Amino acid sequence: MRIVDLGLIGYAEAEALQLKTLEAVTAGREENTLFLLEHPKVITLGRQGGAENLHLDEAQLKAHNIELARTARGGNITCHFPGQLVAYPIWRVEKRPGGMRKFFHDMEQAVMDTCAHYGVSTIRRPKHPGVWVDETRKICSMGIGVRRWVTYHGLALNVARDVSLFNAITLCGIQGAVPTSLSAEAGRDIDIKDVKNVFGKAFAETFADSAVAADQAP
Results as ranks from 00 to 15, higher is better:
R2W: 03
L34W: 05
W149E: 06
F104D: 09
K41F: 06
N65F: 13
A63W: 02
A63M: 01
I9T: 09
I43S: 07
P89F: 09
E94P: 01
T136Q: 15
L157S: 04
F203V: 04
L19M: 14
D134K: 07
V131S: 06
E38H: 07
D162N: 04
R188N: 10
G130H: 03
G176W: 05
K95R: 15
A208F: 06
G50K: 10
A110F: 04
A214F: 11
V93I: 15
K20G: 07
S210M: 12
K20V: 02
A214C: 12
T136I: 10
D194E: 15
R125T: 09
E67P: 12
G143D: 02
H55C: 11
V86S: 05
I139S: 10
H64Y: 09
Y11Q: 04
C115L: 14
E135N: 14
L85F: 05
A59G: 14
N65P: 07
R161M: 05
A12V: 06
A63E: 13
D5S: 13
L56T: 08
I192Y: 11
T21Y: 05
H153C: 00
R2F: 03
P40R: 02
H64W: 09
L165C: 03
D5Q: 14
I43V: 12
L36N: 03
Q84Y: 08
Q216S: 12
Y152P: 02
G46T: 07
Q216N: 12
R101G: 08
V212W: 07
A16E: 13
D113I: 09
G99N: 01
G200I: 06
R124N: 00
G173Y: 02
I77Q: 01
G10E: 07
D215W: 08
N32K: 12
V25R: 02
G154P: 01
L36M: 12
K138Q: 02
V146D: 05
A24W: 01
I66C: 05
N197G: 15
A59V: 15
H55M: 13
T136N: 11
F35P: 00
V4L: 15
G98Q: 00
T206I: 11
M1L: 06
A204Q: 15
N167E: 15
I192H: 13
V163D: 00
A24N: 02
V86T: 11
Q109S: 04
N53M: 10
I139D: 12
Q109T: 09
